[in-house]
């Protein structure tokens, strides 16, 4: 069967998929807002235990990586392959740094026995249990999306390298960018909800 390329169709498809992602996290935001409403004091105190500096650094990392992806799309449109590859490479490195930070952040918490089901947690209040449960679940799900996004961008990187993506055929590149921005977008809300509202 002959295949004709419809870039707009793939873009609409990508956007529709992003909408489902928004609702996936939307469900979690409902849970968060309800439990925050029911355990205001505990959430307030528990949020103090998270490291604002690490959170802020990770926010900055994601924002910069989002900008580099966006710029790489302009670069490919301007036929500047090398610069596009450089920008995408930067994005991948920044994404990995984000994950490493996350790894250490979780690691320290787990060292202090702050994780769901631990004995230390069992002795603390129910609000704390919910806060850290949500913290691990939501940032964990977000980290999973980072990993998927990195794989997606790596594929785009390889295809630009092989000249399969070029200035007149960059729908996949654009879609990878959209996905990465969505991951960024979710973090923009996770960051204040867990680290800042103390």
């Amino acid at each position: 069967m002959e295949t004709h390329r419809d870039d707009t169709a793939s873009k609409i498809g990508m956007w529709l998929f992003l909408l489902t992602e928004m609702l996936l996290f939307g469900g979690l935001f409902i849970v968060y807002s309800i439990y925050r409403y029911k355990n205001q004091e505990a959430f307030h105190q528990a949020a103090h235990e998270l490291d604002v500096v690490v959170g802020t650094v990770n926010t900055a990392i994601l924002l910069i990586s989002s900008a580099t992806v966006a710029m790489s799309i302009s670069a490919i449109q301007l036929k500047n392959k090398k610069f596009a590859l450089f920008l995408l490479g930067t994005t991948i490195v920044l994404g990995l740094v984000f994950l490493v930070n996350k790894y250490f952040e979780w690691g320290i918490k787990i060292q202090h026995h702050i994780y769901p089901g631990s004995e230390v947690m069992a002795q603390r209040g129910q609000g704390d249990i919910l806060f850290f449960g949500l913290y691990y679940f939501m940032t964990g799900l977000h980290a999973l999306h980072i990993i998927i996004g990195l794989v997606f961008i790596a594929v785009v990187f390889a295809r630009i390298w092989n000249d399969k993506i070029s200035h007149d055929n960059f729908a996949l590149h654009e879609n990878a960018g959209l996905y990465w921005h969505l991951v960024d977008l979710i973090w923009i809300f996770l960051f204040p909800l867990f680290y800042l509202i103390t």
Binding site: I30, V31, I34, Y35, K38, N39, P116, G117, G125, Q126, G127, I129, L130, G133, L134, Y136, F137
Partner: peptide, 16 residues
């Protein structure tokens, strides 16, 4: 993982 989202004994709300 025994997180406790909907478990009343851990503060969760089954109605949610």
């Amino acid at each position: 993982l025994n997180i406790g989202f909907f478990d009343p004994s851990l503060g969760g709300d089954p109605i949610l």
